[in-house]
Design a binder for these strands. Sequence first.
DNA 1: GTTTTTCTGTTGCAAAAGCAACAAAATAGT
DNA 2: ACTATTTTGTTGCTTTTGCAACAGAAAAAC
Lengths: 210, 210
Amino acid sequence: MNLSFDVEEFIKEFENSCNKVQKKTFEKNEVITSYIQKRNQFCILISGNADLVRYDLNGNRTIIDHFTNNDVFGEVFYNVTTNNELLVEAKSKCEVLIYSYQNIHYKCKQNCKFHQKLSEYLPELILDKVTSLNMRVELLTKRSTRDKLLGYFNLLSTRTLSKTFKLPFSLTDLADYLSVDRSAMMRELKLLKEENFIKKNGKMITLLYK
Amino acid sequence: MNLSFDVEEFIKEFENSCNKVQKKTFEKNEVITSYIQKRNQFCILISGNADLVRYDLNGNRTIIDHFTNNDVFGEVFYNVTTNNELLVEAKSKCEVLIYSYQNIHYKCKQNCKFHQKLSEYLPELILDKVTSLNMRVELLTKRSTRDKLLGYFNLLSTRTLSKTFKLPFSLTDLADYLSVDRSAMMRELKLLKEENFIKKNGKMITLLYK
DNA sequence: GTTTTTCTGTTGCAAAAGCAACAAAATAGT
DNA sequence: ACTATTTTGTTGCTTTTGCAACAGAAAAAC
């Protein structure tokens, strides 16, 4: 996230000016929302972190997306075509702004500050989402588990400007995020350590190659 | 694509009103643009079709995205972090509107109609892109070649409202799009035919299951 | 502070996917 | 219309990935 404006400031300042937006709090493991076609919910995660997960017919879980501070989500971003369940699950206590997408255009009152700012910031919020989705596609199209891992590590390294960083996921969740089998991923991690590509201590990873 | 406005109309009407936008034509196989960090190009494909492709260090080609009429692309949508080359290649003769993203905010003149309309339509254009990227992620996270194929066929079937449809790709390109080995994909297609899941005649596919 | 649950690390075996290579068919180029 | 190039369809073999299962470590719940 490198937005040109401060989402927190924006929310603090304006959340009470508009009666069409609501703020809700969710506890860990609660379902924040499920994606259903034709309900145009649009959400901004104010604090905490949450995952968009899919459970398919074989019982596989996939973490489709991982949301942290200031991320936007909701079924406006999704054309729900599959019969799989899509859920947003809170991974920690979460504060969420919930809004109906239509209401962005139909203002609640002439001078609603929230509306004004939201319209102004919206393209950037969505653009940021496109960028992160493109990175996701970039990762998922990598052919091997090794390339996915290294690709993801590179991303975190670039993001933190450091060769050492902490995984934002448990290893179990990381496997679901990279869409690979956990044991196969663990095996690959072991090889990467043995071949001196990385150093690993719990969730702390250090890249050892140039 | 199911936008609430007609992109073609918008472009026809306003493309000459703004001196900061240019229209270019590309022949088949020409490179329309390559993605380079910090150049904020933003493009709309008016006609033809094109692919966003990546060539990785092992020589694997991946079709990251496939663009047709009215699709938007450009490196505004991409945080170029990898050292891989990202190119947009014309698959047929293409007409493209090219614009610098910054210029969306800095209008060329007070009453530039193009600017006005573009600002108005932009969120929807980008939102549409998010939707298609989410579908892409949905496909790519499927665990097996079979699930990817069936997922993609379902998508085309839903889009065309028909059990029978034509693949917009060559089979070679489809493999690169689904990020699987071509021969493995062909093998799976053969099995799907043998097990009566699909009927296939060249690029025409018919789904046989409910 | 003890118990229960989740997460990590590992492995043998089975299944799926990738690689290489080639002939036939289709398409594009001249 | 003929030739060159690309695409399709196929297969044997190798490598990678996934599955199942389990023990120990860590974290969460009580």
